[in-house]
Design a protein around this nucleic acid. Structure first.
Lengths: 189, 189
DNA sequence: ATCAGCATGTAAGGCGTTACATGATTCA
DNA sequence: TGAATCATGTAACGCCTTACATGCTGAT
């Protein structure tokens, strides 16, 4: 077992650039990373504690006045763990597309139901694509900063796939509309 | 809480077409569905038991000789649950792209590491795309069967996005190769 | 005879979400 | 004064993966 928790690598990756608090880490994850990975406080804080015990990171009290603040710094062991992970070519990509599931089983209902589900998906992708493009344009202007190239490539992966999604949506809607569905004609529930 | 287990909907969707055993369900999931949803026996059998208690499905002993066999059939309540789910426009699409994570943090290593990771991803996508195209061609020839249209649309979503991935891979490799990375030049580990 | 495939399940444990709980500071 | 943001955490619970455990049948 021991299905190595990947949030650790997100944290190590972020800390390899700068020292951060748990709260900061959450904000970073909610940025460009959120398009391919999520994190929650209930996820991040326990990971931080574990990783400190494993000496992958160090904590420093940076409280200001009465406001508690713990800043984490990556250790040599932490950097080594990050390197090991990056050099391991295995990558577990897991996707759970409930939209596709609903599409796949859409034949159980009138085609209007599926058409609507596609439209909802389309609207969401359009919204997120806008945000991604904003990130992309900002990054493009700063490619000389080395890490920005990597961020830019990740963002452009998102842009390219989202654009492919939108093209598929248009095509799928056209196909469905032109299809004389028995269920639709007979009004079967 | 109660984060409604979605494997239930996969099972209900499959059973809305035909009666199946747990083993059959696993095989179906490992087919075209596996590109956007996974299932395991440790996941399916307990769900089947729960759903039978909830009267969403009925079990029938279809053992042959000494070989145990339990075939499940969807009930009216089960169909209603499937309908309710399909008509609910909310869809939780979760993706965890470790490949993208490695790309995003690739700046911590020499660019060759990232290049290699992209190539591994590319090879995998190419392999899966081939399989998807086989599904797609088979389905295309049977679009008159209504549900095949839905399967076909789901498969073509996979094909379209995988093709976008491959285009991105080519572009990303070109960009990276043309980039005089400091880490690469200095051989920083 | 042996191996692949059919067939059902349980157990342990990990990982993650959600909600809860608490409190300080800043800004309108 | 009140809301938003900063900031840290815990608890309950659910879901899933992996590994294990067992046995039959059909094909080579």
């Amino acid at each position: 077992m021991a299905r190595e928790r990947k949030i650790d690598m997100v944290i190590l990756g972020l800390l390899s650039h700068e020292d951060l608090t748990g709260y900061d880490i959450k904000k970073r994850i909610d940025g460009a990373i959120s398009f391919f990975w999520k994190g929650s406080f209930g996820n991040i804080y326990p990971a931080l504690k574990d990783m400190e015990n494993q000496k992958l990171i160090e904590k420093h009290d940076t409280s200001v006045g009465g406001r508690e603040r713990i800043t984490y710094h990556i250790t040599g062991d932490g950097k080594a763990a990050l390197t090991k992970w990056l050099k391991d070519e295995h990558a577990g990509n897991e996707l759970r597309y409930e939209t596709l599931l609903k599409l796949f089983f859409g034949g159980a209902e009138k085609k209007e139901v599926t058409l609507h589900n596609i439209e909802v998906f389309e609207a969401e992708i359009r919204r997120e694509l806008k945000i991604l493009k904003t990130y992309g344009e900002n990054l493009k202007q700063r490619l000389e900063v080395e890490d920005h190239l990597y961020y830019y490539l990740a963002v452009s992966f998102g842009i390219d796939t989202y654009e492919a999604y939108l093209k598929w949506c248009a095509k799928a809607k056209r196909t469905l509309k032109g299809y004389g569905s028995k269920s639709a004609e007979q009004g079967i529930l």
